[in-house]
Write a protein that binds this DNA or RNA. Structure first.
Length: 460
DNA sequence: TAGACGGCGCATAATG
DNA sequence: CATTATGCG
DNA sequence: GTCTA
């Protein structure tokens, strides 16, 4: 009877209902005698009970008889949703406008319904589906090295670092000795453990809202993305923020050959040649280890690491491993800098701002940061903007609705109760160590590792 | 019988 | 320009 | 689709 139920996928809640029903039946230690028998189970209602009867009597359930139109719509929507970034809502709108397949998105009336990133994903769809070879990845990195300052260090992360022979896309970590500010986690990071088993796709190096000029002034955008655009490597952007850029890049020709700039720019304009997805992440110089961890392990492994940290009452993000230090009641900050190991000069500079918790929390920089990990301090507090509070003022507070107001109050209280202390961020090895784990080499940071060697396993 | 059915952070659009 | 709403995963 | 208020 599972086969009976396995197919439908139109209404998310309906699908879940079927899943629940299947689970309920699977947990039984005996066979079902009838639909009425099944009806007693939690998760099985009249409709599924009826279909169980049909099944037991050997009759077929014929969906076509029930609803041809629905079936057709289901297929169309499922097809449309294959495009990354195109979800249920857009798919439905497209279908209602008469679009029944991905191919039809070519038609202007449908194409215009797409958001910018959806358009790019569509236009480059065949290219982006094609994995890269390691040689292609290396060739692109060499190209980038030739077109940006030699002070940048570039590390290929993700699947490449895990020794995978092919890469779904190219993910690069960039480091620059002058890029050193390590932002603090949100004050509430430890009191709001994320759901560790599901949810957010990985999106490290996010920064809170910044004014346009500030955003565009980032070293990544100015000194990396800009020259690469000029060099004709980048064909389209899917998203750009101060420490992160994602988009479409040109692939090298056969044998890792690159054409001359002018020709490449013409190719890009005409969308000739091969393309791939490229992701650039800019990490603070002293946060190399944490950044590598965040960008190398697959999603499951990274989630496991963060879970591990949470279990030890710490907080792990792409900037480092943090421990919450409660402040004594009188408010005098316990001046206990970590510095477990001798820090290089740059490092010291990188860390310094992290411990000076003298932010003006009413400053606009802090307004609007989310509740989660990774966000918080917009890099703007690098040094200069620190002492002089007030930008546009007003920042947070205000008359938010009850719910949010409560949350904010809690946050304010948190801020006074302590601060985040950076335990380790420079070396992967030492982060593993601080978490009480054996070092796991990149090629083993994957789902198989988690399954074969359950570290602690929160998987309920 | 109507409404819930997971919750959250991000990017972008819409709105003030 | 800043905040809120929506789509997405 | 089912469950609950």
């Amino acid at each position: 009877m599972k086969e009976e139920d396995a197919s439908p996928l139109r209404n998310a809640y309906k699908v879940r209902s079927f899943q629940n029903a299947i689970k309920a039946i699977a947990q039984l230690d005996h066979d079902l005698a009838s639909g009425a028998d099944a009806l007693k189970l939690n998760g099985i209602g009249s409709s599924i009970a009826f279909r169980i009867d049909l099944f037991l009597e050997g009759k077929e359930y014929d969906p076509a008889k029930h609803d041809v139109a629905l079936e057709r719509r289901k297929h169309a929507v499922a097809n449309l949703r294959k495009l990354p970034g195109l979800g249920a809502t857009t798919a439905r709108q497209l279908y209602e406008a008469g679009c029944t397949s991905l191919a039809q998105l070519r038609e202007p009336r449908f194409f215009e319904m797409l958001l910018p990133h959806q358009r790019i994903n569509f236009l480059y769809a065949e290219h982006l589906e094609k994995p890269l070879t390691r040689a292609e990845a290396e060739s692109i990195v060499a190209f980038i090295h030739e077109h940006i300052s030699s002070k940048f260090e570039i590390i290929i992360t993700d699947a490449y670092r895990r020794d995978s022979p092919t890469l779904p896309h190219l993910s690069l970590l960039l480091l620059h000795p002058a890029h050193i500010h390590i932002p603090l986690p949100a004050p509430t990071a430890h009191t709001r453990p994320r759901s560790l088993l599901r949810g957010n796709a990985r999106n490290p190096f996010h920064t809170a809202y910044q004014r346009r000029p500030v955003r565009l002034a980032s070293r990544l955008l100015q000194d990396v993305v800009r020259p690469l655009e000029d060099a004709g490597l980048l064909a389209a952007a899917l998203g750009a923020s101060p420490a992160r850029w994602a988009g479409v890049a040109v692939r090298p020709g056969a044998g890792g050959r690159w054409k001359e700039v002018g020709e490449r720019l013409r190719d890009v304009r005409a969308r000739r040649g091969g393309y791939c997805r490229l992701e650039l992440s800019m990490a603070p110089w002293g946060a190399r280890g944490a950044a590598l961890l965040a960008l190398t392990g697959d999603v499951d492994f990274w989630r496991m690491m963060r879970d591990k940290a949470a279990g030890l009452d710490m907080h792990l993000n792409e900037y480092g491993l943090w421990r919450w230090q409660a402040k004594p009641r009188d408010g005098s900050a316990p001046h206990t800098p970590v510095a477990a190991e001798p820090a290089s000069e740059v490092q010291a500079k990188a860390r310094a701002p992290a411990y000076e918790c003298d932010y003006d929390f009413d400053d606009a920089e802090w307004a609007g940061y989310g509740n989660g990990y990774g966000g918080a301090s917009a890099g703007a507090s690098g040094g200069a903007s620190k002492g002089k509070g007030k930008g546009t003022g007003k920042g947070k507070g205000k008359d938010v609705e009850k719910d949010k107001a409560r949350g904010k109050e809690a946050e304010d209280a948190q801020e006074e109760n302590g601060y985040w202390e950076l335990v380790e961020s420079e070396s992967e090895e030492r982060i593993f160590d601080a978490l009480g784990m054996e070092y796991v080499p990149p090629e083993r940071r994957n789902f198989v590792f988690l399954r074969d060697k359950p570290p602690k396993k929160a998987i309920a």
